[in-house]
Amino acid sequence: MKSRIMTTISNSKEEALIVKEQDVVPLRNRVKEYGVKIGMSILNQTKLITATSELVRNLLKYGGGGKVIIESVSNGRDNGVRVTFIDNGPGIANVELAMKDGYSTGKSLGLGLPGTKRLVNEFDIKTELGNGTTVTITKWKNG
């Protein structure tokens, strides 16, 4: 198994297909369950599900739907939840710009990506024009 951070091991894992707005709430509830299972505080749970909400809405709105992987991870010192959002949409032309507060091509607040980064402990975005976007976030229990 390939892992972005060498020392992090994945304990349990599941995948969900996201194609419509009705898929958002069940996914958020699943992610929350992963947080509850490792004893995450209400505050961190709320940050995690809010971040999930933002990224899954981007995946639907801009990526045209995709796949989400939820994982329970640990790095020896702490346990956490990692969520990966994968779409095969148009990709993002200028990631630096997309990560700026207030930048939106969808007449929205433009807070989804930068806000999510502030809500989680690890944030990684890989995107290529015409080849989709993959965003990975990790929230540690004590992070």
Partner: peptide, 13 residues
């Protein structure tokens, strides 16, 4: 709720 308030602030709303 307190956790909502903090999350909203971090999001930048």
């Amino acid at each position: 709720r307190p956790e909502i308030a903090q999350t909203v602030v971090h999001l930048g709303i």
